[in-house]
Amino acid sequence: MMKRERLARLLVLGIFVALPLALLGYQYGLRPLTAPHRVIDIVAAAPEAGGFQPDSIQVQTGETVTLRFSAPDVTHGIAIGPGLGIDIGSVEPGQVREITLTFDHAGTFTFYCNTWCSRDHWRMRGVLSVYDTDGSLPAPSRDPVIDQLVAEGVDIDAAHSGQTNHTEAVALVPSPERGAVLLPNLTVPHEVGNSQRRRTHTLAEAAALLQAANPTASEQDVIDAAAALWLPSPAPPADTARLYQQNCAACHGETGSGQSLSTITTASEPAAFADFSYMLHMRSDVLYAKIRRGGMGTDMPNFGTLFMPDETWALVDYLWGLTLAAE
């Protein structure tokens, strides 16, 4: 009897002492110690509940690290950019998603949530600093497009809605398909034909130039022809649609309607890209700048630390697609 009693007492001790020590000891002690390289556990919570914890990670070039993301509250989507092409996908509550990385060049990157997860979703970002072996960190490079806009004196944050001069044009519905048919028979001024120049000028201005070069063309013809030129060709890659849905659709609407989720309350109405009158006077490089730098005084966040410049241009093209394909 005493033998069994002693065994039972040992088991009780095992349950109350050894079990917790073994479980917690393994998870917080043994596991990180025995890992072949650094393992960083990152809690991915909605910003209201603390966002990424930790939200700042330092690694060295050539060092291998494993990032383990876990979500305590709702589903998040984890991506790291810019230029790394890393999208871990969704992390559901209670799940752990991990990725092992080795960086070959130094730089500052952002790990961010790309699935709408709360009102402050866009604040859910963390900084991943990759230091060079000599301990240096390259300074972030300036964006020539934004520098150029600033040099030009363009106000990126100027309100665009309601400052239309060509009220008559607003009533028109642009048809890029029709425009494409008309274009060969029209005189296209040199400035309008230059695709680089189109990025720094508005569609309205191009229409005016076209009208001046082709006095006999109707207003509709001119708008359609300009629309055909503005319709991105080739169409942006399929990734861009996903990028838009993940990062833009929750506020601006899937179709660019500007109709956002009922739970979102932004300081100002999200821009409606499907609204031709908004886009008519919008320069592509201003759209680019707004995406990269964010909108001052609005709730438009900055995406310059998430996307590469070419990804951003592809997004601008995608917006034009929404505008011109909307009808």
Binding site: V74, W116, C117, S118, Q245, A249, A250, L261, S262
Partner: peptide, 24 residues
């Protein structure tokens, strides 16, 4: 979905669909 990621599973019809806010 209007706040966070949800899904819809319909009993008896074995239909399952995830939905992200902003993408119907």
């Amino acid at each position: 979905a209007s706040d966070v990621v949800h899904g819809l599973y319909l009993d008896g019809y074995d239909i399952e669909q995830q939905v992200l806010p902003g993408v119907s």
